[in-house]
């Protein structure tokens, strides 16, 4: 598993310029349905794009990094997919009762930034600490290498919600859905907790925006900060899709990097009262 991810990472890095451009944008996914009452197997369709807007299309993305987990937390296959000019689309068969998890996790990238010259020009390169050491100028200052990753996730439930796909593993950046994502209700406080390698992430900025920003005056963004336990609480005012985004910057010294950077996006539906 780990090895496979590393190999994929290498392949994507080799992909070069386009990938780094796309990954500068948050990667969101929006399914046609978050909750189903079908008794038989049912196909949902998902939009995926790299964009700074909330559920607005900008750039298509590669779907190699999408993983689908069934209600037993077992891997499932992606259905038909398409990559357009502005978005990617994939279909997904929901065959069983319970909660599925769909996760888009980019391979880890290393980015080294530094300032150089009399005018403190900031420069960046895609390089680990080791790679950068031989490439950056001798007079480079404020050299910082970030191990960066984008994670985008949503949950879709057929029938009653189940919890196997919500179980944290204690590895990397993780969402602990204290409120089940299929149980977020208008007017009721929903709680989400965040950890890195099992440790709570406190004082992290988290923002939540409901669908439809182009069609209203206010963005209706709610800014939250995680508490000492890594938890935020959000009470939706509108029904419909919401995009939660969290940005982690965590000092963590390793051979390859000085800090960890994670951009995390959760798409969820706030259900009617």
């Amino acid at each position: 598993m780990k090895k496979g991810m590393m190999l994929m990472g290498a392949a994507v890095l080799a992909g070069g310029f386009m990938v780094s451009t796309a990954s500068a944008h948050p990667l969101w996914m929006l399914p046609s349905e978050f909750n189903l009452s079908t008794e038989e197997s049912f196909w949902i369709t998902v939009d995926a794009t790299a964009s700074h807007g909330v559920f607005s299309f900008d750039k298509p993305i590669g779907l190699d990094n999408v993983s689908i987990y069934g209600p037993e937390n077992d891997r499932r296959r992606i259905g038909p997919y398409y990559k357009g000019q502005r978005r990617s689309v994939f279909d997904l068969e929901i065959a069983e009762q319970g909660t599925y998890k769909v996760e888009l996790k980019t391979p880890v990238r290393y980015m080294t930034s530094y300032v150089v010259g009399e005018r403190d020009t900031r420069r960046r390169m895609m390089a680990t600490k080791i790679e950068a050491a031989s490439q950056i100028p001798d007079d480079a200052r404020e050299v910082t290498t970030t191990m960066a990753q984008n994670i985008s996730v949503f949950y879709v439930t057929q029938g009653a919600p189940s919890t196997a796909v919500l179980e944290p593993t204690g590895e990397g950046f993780e969402l602990h859905a204290l409120t089940h994502p299929s149980d977020v209700v208008v007017g009721e406080a929903a709680q989400f907790r965040f950890t890195y390698n099992g440790e709570p992430i406190s004082e992290m900025d988290v923002e939540v925006v409901p669908f439809g920003t182009p069609y209203r005056d206010s963005r209706l963004q709610t800014d939250l900060v995680s508490d000492a336990d890594g938890t935020v609480s959000y009470t939706p005012a509108l029904a419909g899709p919401h995009l939660l985004s969290a940005n982690l910057r965590l000092a963590q010294e390793s051979v390859l990097a000085d800090q960890v950077g994670v951009n995390f996006l959760l798409s969820f539906e706030a259900l009617s009262q």
């Binding site: 909750n35 009452s37 079908t38 439930t157 029938g159 009653a160 209700v185 259900l271 009262q273």
Partner: peptide, 18 residues
Amino acid sequence: EPDWLKDMRRWWRKAGRY
């Protein structure tokens, strides 16, 4: 059709799906 039971949103959320 069961597919549209969820459109009775509150009932589906609180009772139907269980």
